[in-house]
Structures are given as C-alpha cells and as structure tokens.
Amino acid sequence: KRPMNAFMVWAQAARRKLADQYPHLHNAELSKTLGKLWRLLSESEKRPFVEEAERLRVQHKKDHPDYK
C-alpha cells in the first residue's frame, strides 16, 4: 500500500470533522468538499501535512525497499 500524500494526511482528520458537522452528506460530496477546502489552504497551512507525508514516504521506502 502506498504512503499517504499530503492531501490524504490532512483529509483523514478533516473528513471526520466534516462528516460530524454534515452527517447527511454522501461520501462523494464529502470528497468534493474536502478537495475544495484543501485548495483554499495556503502553502504555510499545508506545510505540516506535506512534511508528514514526506516522513511517511521516507519510512515506507525504508520499510519496503523493493516497493515500486
């Protein structure tokens, strides 16, 4: 399984919050909304998630050196 990218790291927590706020939204609508919200974030707001995704990528490479 591939490591999560920055969006997926962020969306993991954001999806729970959004689903709690809008329990009537279908998963497809949640995903579209999350995409729009992510694009509205500034680079500095995204930075911690980009850094975490990079950490996960490096760890994955270490754990699975033959993964392509």
Rank of each mutant, 00 (worst) to 15 (best):
Leu30Asn: 02
Gly35Glu: 13
Arg16Ile: 05
Pro65Thr: 08
Glu45Tyr: 06
Arg2Cys: 05
Asp63Met: 09
Lys36Tyr: 01
His24Pro: 03
Asp66Pro: 11
Pro3Leu: 04
Phe49Ser: 13
Arg55Met: 12
Lys1Met: 03
Gln12Ser: 07
Ser44His: 07
Glu43Phe: 15
Gln59Thr: 13
Phe49Thr: 13
Glu51Pro: 07
Leu40Pro: 00
Glu54Tyr: 00
Tyr22Trp: 15
Pro48Trp: 02
Ala19Thr: 08
Leu25Arg: 01
Glu51Cys: 02
Ser31Val: 06
Glu43Ser: 13
Val50Cys: 10
Glu29Arg: 14
Lys61His: 10
Leu30His: 02
Lys61Ile: 10
Asp20Ala: 15
Lys62Asn: 09
Pro23Gln: 15
His64Cys: 06
Thr33Pro: 02
Glu29Leu: 15
Ala13Glu: 15
Ala14Arg: 09
His64Tyr: 06
Ala13Gln: 15
Pro48Val: 03
Asn27Cys: 09
Arg39His: 06
His26Gly: 14
Lys36Val: 02
Lys1Ile: 02
Asp66Ile: 03
Ala14Cys: 01
Leu30Phe: 06
Lys61Asp: 07
Pro48Gly: 07
Glu45Asn: 05
Asn5Thr: 10
His24Trp: 13
Tyr67Met: 13
Pro65Cys: 12
Gln21Cys: 12
Leu25Ala: 03
Asn5Arg: 07
Val58Ile: 08
Thr33Phe: 12
Pro65Ser: 09
Ala28Tyr: 11
Pro65Gln: 06
Ala14Met: 14
Ala14Ser: 06
Leu37Ile: 12
Leu41His: 05
Arg15Glu: 01
Pro23Asp: 15
Pro23Lys: 15
Val50His: 05
Ala13Gly: 12
Pro23Ser: 15
Arg15Trp: 03
Arg55Gln: 13
Leu18Ile: 06
Leu25Lys: 03
Leu56Pro: 11
Met4Gly: 11
His64Ser: 12
Arg15Pro: 00
Arg57Trp: 04
Ala28Gly: 09
Trp10Asn: 00
Arg55Glu: 13
Pro23Ile: 08
Arg47Asp: 09
Lys62Gly: 12
Lys17Gly: 02
Leu40His: 15
Leu40Arg: 14
Asn27Val: 13
Asp66Asn: 09
Lys46Phe: 03
Pro23Ala: 15
Pro23Thr: 15
Lys61Pro: 10
Phe7Ser: 00
Pro65Ile: 04
Lys17Asn: 11
Ala28Trp: 14
Gln21Tyr: 07
Lys46Arg: 08
Lys1His: 08
Arg39Cys: 03
Met4Asp: 07
Trp10Ile: 06
Ala11Glu: 01
Ser44Val: 06
Gln21Phe: 11
Met4Leu: 08
Tyr67Val: 10
Val9Met: 05
Ser44Met: 05
Ala11Val: 08
Glu45Cys: 14
Lys61Thr: 08
Arg15Asn: 01
